[in-house]
Amino acid sequence: MASLITCPHCGTRPKEEFSIRGAALKRPDPAASEKDWHAYVYLRENPKGRYQEYWHHAAGCRRWLIVERDNVTHDVFAVSDAAAVRGASE
């Protein structure tokens, strides 16, 4: 397991402090087609290797984080605040 996550607000913490929401997908536009929304809500890739996930630091700062990790080697490459990432892309 990727057992140590370095939260940008709290520092290095064990994985027990977090709850994992799942893949960090881009939310479709509210007016997007039913097909797009169905894909966003129900259909998931099952990637092997490096990908991004939403992690909630439930026992710490209670912020949503985006953790980029490799689910084969368990390396953690980057952890960032989800709000900051969203703010930068808007």
Binding site: R13, P14, A58, G60
Partner: peptide, 16 residues
């Protein structure tokens, strides 16, 4: 790493 005056939320004996 945790100097005097530092404070943070954390899990302590399974309690936040």
């Amino acid at each position: 790493a945790f100097a005097i005056g530092t404070s943070a939320n954390m899990l302590c004996c399974h309690v936040s």
